[in-house]
Nucleic acid binder design. Structure first.
Lengths: 133, 133
DNA sequence: GTAGCTGCAAACTCTTTGCAACTCT
DNA sequence: AGAGTTGCAAAGAGTTTGCAGCTAC
């Protein structure tokens, strides 16, 4: 039983075949798949799975904070496992998504929220850029 | 003719009554109205306006960069005039949106993009927090 | 055994679009 | 006059949901 499956079990989720497949797909995805992507990848392992189950499972995982839902201004959501904390730079020419992490930024965000009288619960930062020649 | 209307005219847009009304509404809105909000506010000034026109106009204004489209993970878009550059902190308990600006942050973003080999074209940062007691 | 999960299809929400009529320039 | 704009209604995309049957616990 994978670590991910354990976390789900702890949260009271039943470990069905479909969920196991979806978790496997997420664990093996190095990118930021859309719901359709996750659906296509799981379907190749289990052709009987339905997209409704993918939607429902991803929502559950989002509530449990095991997954992060992104909206890169595309009109649909993308998901990724909530493992290491990082942000994204989206290449405007190719759509490629580059991950990065920056300690200074983390501290600064905390400080900004605190200065405004808030405790930072969540945040998202996306950079959109063009490759320098 | 307002400054905003001039900018639209320069871009080759015809200044129709509907557009004038929408621009007026945007100029008078201190918040971050959804399309439905903009529609409701324009409708009270011009009951014949249609929501399709609001959608079309906001898209045009977005392309011209006169307006910024936000997606605060709510399943729909919110708009605001692109006047001064700032970011948002969303109060998770009330949904209230607080604007802020931070020079250090601006520099840091540029630097991160440059270090990744990119020219920063656009970006978005949202903080989600809970009010400190 | 039963609460929870699934697939299916229908429904829902937000947004876009084709078209005929109209209106800025 | 003519290209651009509008309202309407229909269509489109992404997502959610009601339900009857199934399954993990």
């Amino acid at each position: 039983m994978s670590n991910l499956e354990e976390l789900c079990a702890q949260a009271g989720l039943k470990m069905t075949g479909q969920r196991r497949t979806i978790l496997k797909v997420l664990g093996e995805s190095a990118d930021h798949p859309s719901v359709e992507d996750v659906y296509a990848r799981t379907k190749s392992m289990d052709p009987s799975i339905s997209i409704a189950t993918v939607y429902r499972t991803l929502s559950l995982l989002d509530e449990l904070d095991l997954v992060i839902r992104h909206e890169f201004q595309e009109g649909y959501s993308r998901y990724e496992l909530n493992w290491d904390h990082h942000h994204h730079l989206i290449d405007l020419e190719t759509g490629k998504v580059i991950e990065f992490q920056n300690d200074e930024l983390e501290k600064l965000k905390e400080k900004i929220a605190r200065d405004l009288g808030y405790e930072l619960v969540d945040h998202r930062l996306e950079l959109y850029g063009r490759k320098l020649k």
